[in-house]
Write a protein that binds this DNA or RNA. Structure first.
Length: 428
DNA sequence: TCTGGGGTCCTAGGACCC
DNA sequence: TCTGGGGTCCTAGGACCC
């Protein structure tokens, strides 16, 4: 296989841009998207960023600032964002099947096999196409390693004169951009490593690139540090991940709309989380052998506590009902009356193929029960596919609703809900 | 009053075995 | 009972990502 060449397509302020797609009047306005419970800022338009509203800022602390500058606020609308993301992926897939969807707003392409004469012009063309067809502005970085492609897209996003694209193939050009990037912004350096490296005089990406792989290993830690050094020197260490690579765990969690001391409310939440997680699992034709739950009080209040429990199942399953009863049994063992629960999580893992059971020669497993459950869940999933999620549900899921997060200012699901289609009003 | 949700990978250390 | 090296498997926790 020849050397890969990566193009990272990175959506600018993705959630904020999605809100602007259907409300063009918001373009050029300060706008923020808030997390569940409208708790903190998870996306900002360029104008909101200019007001020095940090990522992750608790919304209540910035209320006055929002008001003062007329900052538009939106509750996160993941249905809309997911759908817009899918449309972008479609465009990219038509360019090349050698694509890795890295997150909801970023994809890597391996463009080494494409016949491209001028990378800069190519990137500009892709950028314009996505903007025109979907309405979301993107930044594109091109380089021989993922770490450099990422670094290139960062620069492309920030420097208007680059017009959203940057190609890092020439060594001198590369080094000048390495010098201009503080270490904190390198892919793989977080809040812990940043200050530690800075304290020993390493300040830019260039300083790291000039380390030997051995020094990288020592200073940054293990294989990860060594790879970072190599990748900044244009060596590929992280290949394009194939589409088939599957998740190792699936979780669902929420901070409750209101704290609760009622076990039924927490049970209902855990059941809903299990229903979500197990449905995702079934899509990949797998079953779980582990179930875990995790509950906490409010970490901003005194006496913060967490509880967790996990069981290993005798028999793998992807059955919502079975998994719910396991989760709730665990919770029953943890529950303490009077505790104000604030947040809960259900997590499944230890996945095996759901056809493997049929080849269990030892006969320890109950294959008929498994098969019946599989058919039952397939029926449920197909009904959900046709009539919408929550058409059928387990009783526990509807035991209570007060755990549900508040979403007071969510925009319409323009593209995924018939009731919320955008309206065009034509005046005669 | 009000501070998100969903993941991965790596390592150290314990339990256990020969 | 104690000694020691070599190896595997598992888990908890740290660090990072978007």
């Amino acid at each position: 296989m020849s050397q890969p060449l990566f193009a990272l397509i990175d959506c600018n302020n993705f959630f904020a841009s999605c809100e602007q797609v259907f409300r063009p009047a918001l373009v050029g306005q300060p706008l923020v998207v808030l997390s569940s419970n409208d708790g903190c800022v998870v996306a900002r338009s360029a104008e909101a960023r200019a007001l020095k509203i940090p990522m992750g800022a608790p919304a209540f602390k910035y209320k006055d600032l929002f008001k003062q500058h007329g900052v538009q606020q939106f509750s996160a609308n993941f249905e809309l964002y997911g759908d817009i993301s899918r449309r972008i992926t479609e465009i990219l897939t038509s360019i090349t099947p050698r694509l890795e969807v890295y997150s909801i707003d970023e994809s890597f392409l391996d463009i080494s096999q494409l016949d491209i004469k001028d990378y800069q012009a190519w990137a500009q063309h892709v950028r314009k196409t996505i903007l025109q067809w979907v309405g979301v502005p993107v930044s594109i970085g091109i380089a021989p390693s993922k770490t450099l492609a990422k670094l290139a897209s960062e620069h492309a996003k920030r420097k208007p004169e680059l017009q959203g694209t940057l190609v890092l193939l020439d060594e001198e050009v590369r080094d000048s951009y390495l010098r201009a990037l503080p270490i904190e912004e390198i892919w793989g350096i977080g809040w812990r490593l940043g200050p530690r490296l800075r304290s020993i005089g390493i300040a830019t990406a260039y300083d790291i690139a000039k380390l030997s792989p051995v020094q990288g290993r020592k200073l940054i830690g293990s294989v990860h540090g060594e790879r970072m050094v190599r990748e900044l020197n244009s060596q590929t260490c992280y290949p394009l991940e194939s589409l088939g690579s599957e998740q190792k765990m699936i979780s669902a969690s929420r901070t409750f709309g209101n704290d609760t001391d009622q076990s039924s409310v927490v049970e209902s939440a855990l059941a809903n989380f299990i229903a979500r997680a197990s449905q995702k699992l079934r899509v990949s034709n797998r079953a779980a052998t582990r179930v875990a739950i995790y509950v906490t009080t409010d970490r901003h209040k005194p006496g913060y506590r967490t509880w967790s429990k996990e069981v290993i199942l005798d028999q793998p399953t992807a059955d919502t009902g079975t998994l719910i009863s396991v989760a709730n049994q665990m919770f029953a063992e943890l529950y303490e009356p009077g505790v104000q629960y604030h947040r809960a999580m259900s997590l499944i893992s230890g996945f095996v193929s759901d056809t493997q059971l049929q080849t269990d020669l030892l006969g320890f497993r109950d294959v008929p029960t498994f098969d019946r459950s599989k058919q039952r869940m397939a029926a449920v999933d197909s009904i959900h596919g046709r009539y919408g999620r929550q058409t059928l549900y387990y009783g526990t899921e509807k035991l209570a609703t007060s755990w549900q997060p508040r979403k007071s200012i969510r925009s319409p699901r323009y593209t995924t809900s018939w009731d919320e289609l955008p309206r065009v009003i034509i005046k005669a």
